[in-house]
């Protein structure tokens, strides 16, 4: 299990990195390498050119301004340990603690996880939940891609071969919003069989002002429960709403594989959505956003 040969490039400036990925056929950008390098060791991935982004300046940052901005090369660990983010986007850390293990989060990046787009990965689901906007750069210019247009299919993104993801940004949810992220994996840190994330803002009457629900692991990409979200607006925060959300989640399309059936995944989608809704309800008004 040794990687095949490749030409290694280690640019230090984004412009150089973009030029390199644009100039070479069969080139891959190397972020944290926690998914790409195993694929290379198995020789499932055999790039001729590897553009290492780890030395490129300006790609690793956390900006908790009006919008949350994350550099694509920000290590998952730095997100995990950022108290600003913990206050502004508490669901991010809750989800992140399920991403691999300490050693992989030390190296793995937010952008790498999003670009790898594993169907049950937490970061793409969280970004979809936040309607994040991705910034891609190529020699042709800068392009903004909404997260719901980013995932095209199974581990397939809408990034062009000559584009690099540079930044992820999204609007923060209001102070005191409720949040919950639940997933089920056989073991800690494994890819989830299924996951669910919920964000809720309530108005003063205790009714839903805004809600977002994402389910991961069911099919090729994470999905939002958009129809339910639209219908839920203005409804009271009550157990019935939780049950309806769970029912909606368990009606989604799902895939079977050698390990788990579609039925089971759908069942989990319902269970986990209910749990995430419940967590979100409980946390409304007590979220630590200051």
């Amino acid at each position: 299990m040794k990687p095949g040969p490749f030409t290694y490039h280690d640019p230090t400036e984004l412009a150089d990195a973009v030029a390199l990925i644009g100039a070479h056929e069969n080139a891959r950008a190397l972020a944290g390498g926690q998914s790409l390098v195993p694929m290379m060791n198995f020789r499932y991935a055999m790039p001729d050119h590897l553009i290492d982004l780890n030395g490129v300046s300006g790609l690793s940052f956390i900006d908790c301004g009006e919008r949350i901005r994350l550099g694509a090369m920000t290590r998952q660990r730095d997100v995990e340990f950022s108290s600003d983010l913990q206050h502004a986007v508490p669901i991010l850390r809750e989800a992140l603690l399920n991403v691999g293990h300490r050693q992989t989060r030390n190296r793995g990046t937010i952008g790498g996880s999003i670009c790898n787009l594993d169907p049950s990965a937490e970061m793409p689901a969280i970004m979809l939940l936040h309607d994040a906007e991705l910034t891609a750069q190529s020699t042709r210019g800068v392009r903004k891609i909404p997260m719901n247009k980013f995932a095209l299919g199974f581990m397939t993104t809408s990034l062009e071969p000559d584009e690099l993801l540079t930044e992820i940004s999204f609007a923060r949810w209001g102070k005191g919003h409720g949040y919950g992220f639940h997933e089920y994996a056989r073991r800690h840190g494994d890819f989830a069989i299924c996951s669910a994330g919920v964000l809720i803002e309530a108005d003063s009457r205790g009714e839903v002002a805004r809600i977002a629900i994402v389910v991961g692991g069911l099919g090729a990409t994470p999905v939002r429960l958009s129809a339910f979200e639209a219908a839920a607006k203005g409804h009271r925060l009550a157990d019935e709403l939780i049950a309806e959300a769970a029912a909606a989640a368990s009606r989604m399309d799902a895939l079977s594989d050698a390990h788990f059936s579609a039925d089971y995944r759908r069942h989990l989608a319902g269970v986990l959505t209910r749990r995430a809704m419940k967590s979100a309800f409980e946390r409304i008004g007590v979220a630590a956003y200051v």
Binding site: R251, F260, H267
Partner: peptide, 18 residues
């Protein structure tokens, strides 16, 4: 396996929707 347990809990070989 967990799926087997869910099937037992939900009755014979069925996975119930929520």
């Amino acid at each position: 396996m967990p799926e087997q347990i869910v099937r037992i809990v939900n009755g014979t070989n069925k996975i119930a929707a929520e």
